[in-house]
């Protein structure tokens, strides 16, 4: 059994607004073993990015615990430097997440400078090594982001995260803004790096085929809650939650033979995360909903090895 690199215990993030409380992340319990990837999928507004940012303490959590390597990072007060060096993030949009007035070298060296990691010569060596790892030519060191295309910019984003030699990286939709051929290059790069360095990833995306490709286990989120958590093969072969099933059947498959297959379309749209009604949040759109779905005591139940769902009508 591998050791657990990251664990969240009843992690909650509520945002107060004048219209009520937004339940962005609601009692999320996840754990990621060292060197593995947990995929977090869900539609816009389900709280997956908020979850990623809470875990890095970029947004303070409302309550709950985040255990990194066994230590609760929220208890450390302002002293966050130790774990910050070991936990990094790759952002979604390579066009807006890089300072346009910094050269590639400075962008990648910035985390080292901030953390006062070594002398100038050592920093230069590290930056050059990481540029080589992520496939950026040395001549680009003096280039500015606007001179580069999306794929290369995202490589800078990856390099910035990896230069600190992190143990855990939150990847917040790192390939969504890229064309498919470039997307494939970045995904291969991230998996190679994981194999070499044993990094643990939390991979946030809305793209199910990407998540299937890169993850070991997958958490499906809906309106702030994790509704299904399972190993990858299990989730795709036997989705037990009606939302997961609907999500899987909504993905267009590039195979004309599958076109005739019957698809289960769910009606309606995501309801509001402001002061949600008790019980199952998917119930208003769910084809199997019954009155008992609105019981407030609904929690995660085990339906198989490492397979949990939040539903009172599990599918077969």
């Amino acid at each position: 059994m591998k050791k657990t690199m990251l664990e969240t215990v009843d992690l909650v993030k509520y945002f107060d607004t004048k219209n009520g409380i937004v339940h962005a992340v609601d009692h999320v319990n996840l754990s990621i073993p060292e060197g593995e990837t947990l995929g977090v999928v869900g539609e816009s507004g389900c709280g997956k990015s908020t979850l990623g940012r809470c875990i890095l303490n970029l947004i303070p959590a409302t309550s709950g615990q985040i255990l990194f390597d066994g230590k609760n990072i929220l208890e450390r007060g302002g002293k966050s430097k130790d774990f910050r060096q070991k936990m990094q993030i790759i952002f979604q949009d390579p066009y807006s997440s890089l300072d346009p007035r910094q050269t590639v070298f400075n962008l990648i060296a910035e985390p080292l400078k901030t953390n006062r990691m070594g002398t100038k010569a050592e920093m230069r060596e590290k930056v050059e090594a990481i540029m080589d790892t992520v496939g950026l030519a040395p001549r680009l060191a003096t280039a500015y982001p606007h001179e580069l295309d999306g794929g290369r910019r995202q490589r800078i984003g990856v390099a910035r995260a990896l230069v600190m030699d992190p143990k855990f990286v939150v990847c917040d939709e790192p390939v969504s803004a890229l064309d498919v051929s470039i997307q494939a290059q970045i995904l291969n790069l991230m998996m190679d790096v994981q194999e070499e360095r044993g990094i643990t990833y939390m991979f946030i995306t809305h793209d199910l085929s990407v998540v299937k490709h890169i993850s070991h286990a997958i958490a499906v989120m809906y309106l702030g809650e994790v509704v299904e958590l399972a190993p990858k093969e299990e989730l795709f072969a036997h989705p037990r939650h009606p939302y997961t099933k609907a999500l899987l059947s909504a993905v267009p498959i590039p195979d004309p033979a599958r076109r005739t297959m019957e698809r289960q379309l769910i009606k309606g749209e995501v309801t509001s995360p402001v002061d949600p009604a008790p019980g199952c949040r998917f119930a208003p759109r769910c084809p199997y909903a019954t009155p008992e779905c609105l019981s407030p005591s609904l929690g995660m139940t085990e339906v198989g090895p490492n397979h949990q769902i939040r539903c009172c009508h599990p599918l077969d």
Partner: peptide
């Protein structure tokens, strides 16, 4: 061929993608 090789396929278990190298 490169385009199809770049999409992660929901129905197969291939671990590595076969992208097109370089840029448009």
């Amino acid at each position: 061929v490169g385009l199809f090789g770049s999409i992660p396929d929901l129905s197969s278990d291939k671990r590595r993608l076969e992208p097109i190298y370089g840029m448009t």
